[in-house]
């Protein structure tokens, strides 16, 4: 496989309209999507990810039903984009190749296939389908803190051999400290760097997203995720506007217009934010205890329903080692905590 040529020194993929879907409880409207895409497109962003937060097919009781059908949102984004292209997320076990085909029909040209960091061997079926559709491919190794760098590199190898053009160190819990992130970047680059790009997707739970992005670039990572206003699960993602400003200061060419992104964040995204992702107690606990960031809103809801603190639910989820997709276990944990309290 030959490595994709880059348009700039580094490729910034914006996930406001996908990871941000978690923070919006999956209720993005078509107008919000169009406005955001127009602003990102005008600021020079090359790839814009749009879909339910848990990927295509994610609309469900377990993760939350989409307010607007994601295929409608993808098609609207595609229509609005002048130079930017549309990416979608697909989590095998939740979404299927059928969902991917629908997203492709709606205008998506890249898929990011996401598995837990030790389970890459559920992805080949989806990479093969994506390549058949002529889509560009990225592989998310989620909760990358949950395995060591050498094993993460082996998992990246499985994805690359299956047709993935860019495996990602995906720090779903926002748990990776700088040295831990660096070790993983280096391991992936050593294993697949000759054939594939390597990427980084950060969360701000411990405030590491931007710092780790700089380390990523220094190490040789060439695909980095951001979200406007950090809009994403947990305390959100590395803010795209901050990444643009920081890389500009470093003299790294991202192809992004930092001023236009600041305007986009301030004038387009901020007015529709229901919550500005922040480092509050619950989100910090997620980074600290290594909990999947998307659990946040679900834990808050279960906390209200069962009258137990959300941060205790999240901590317990960390102790039990729950992974992305197990949102149902949040309710189970809350019921258990409520019973413990009643018993004591």
């Amino acid at each position: 496989m030959t490595k994709r040529a880059l348009r700039n020194d580094v490729r910034i993929i914006d996930t406001t309209l996908r990871d941000g879907s978690h923070a919006m409880a999956h209720r993005f409207t078509e107008t919000q999507v169009r406005d955001t895409v127009r602003a990102l497109d005008g600021a020079g962003v090359e790839w814009i990810e749009v879909s339910h937060g848990d990927g295509v097919g994610g609309s469900s009781f377990n993760y939350g039903f989409s307010g607007t059908d994601e295929m409608t949102l993808i098609a609207a984004a595609r229509e609005e984009a002048r130079q930017a292209r549309i990416a979608v997320l697909l989590v095998p076990g939740i979404g299927t190749v059928d969902d991917l085909k629908r997203a492709h029909d709606a205008g998506a040209e890249m898929v990011r296939v996401a598995t837990h960091c030790t389970e890459a061997d559920v992805s080949p079926q989806h990479f093969a389908a994506a390549r058949d559709l002529g889509m560009e491919t990225v592989g998310f190794l989620m909760m990358a803190h949950r395995t060591d760098p050498a094993d993460l590199a082996k998992q990246a190898r499985i994805m690359v051999d299956a047709g993935c053009e860019c495996p990602y160190v995906t720090d779903s819990a926002g748990a990776l400290l700088m040295h831990e992130a660096r070790a993983r970047f280096e391991a992936l680059l050593a294993e697949v760097g000759d054939e594939a790009l390597v990427g980084y997707h950060g969360h701000q739970n411990l405030s590491m997203g931007v710092a780790n992005s700089v380390i990523a670039y220094e190490t040789g990572v060439r695909s980095i995720d951001g979200s406007l206003c950090a809009l994403g699960a947990g305390s959100g993602n590395s803010p795209t506007e901050v990444l643009a400003a920081v890389f500009d200061r470093l003299g790294v060419d991202t192809g992004l217009d930092a001023g236009a992104l600041l305007d986009a964040a301030e004038d387009v995204v901020r007015p529709y934010l229901q919550r500005w992702p922040k480092m509050d107690r619950n989100a910090i606990v997620q980074g600290w205890a290594g909990v999947y960031s998307s659990f946040l809103l679900h834990a808050e809801r279960a906390a209200e329903r069962y009258k137990v603190p959300a941060h205790e639910i999240l901590r317990r989820c960390g102790e039990l080692g729950y992974v992305g997709g197990q949102e149902d276990m949040i309710i189970d944990v809350a019921i258990g905590l409520a019973a413990e309290r009643a018993g004591s």
């Binding site: 377990n62 389970e119 080692g321 729950y322 992974v323 197990q326 149902d328 189970d332």
Partner: peptide, 23 residues
């Protein structure tokens, strides 16, 4: 109907869990 499957590598291995949501 809709089905979701999640693989969890935690050690010691987790016992199978299933959640059923009905509207």
């Amino acid at each position: 109907g809709k089905a979701i499957i999640v693989l969890n590598p935690v050690e010691p291995p987790m016992i199978m869990r299933d959640t059923v949501f009905c509207m």
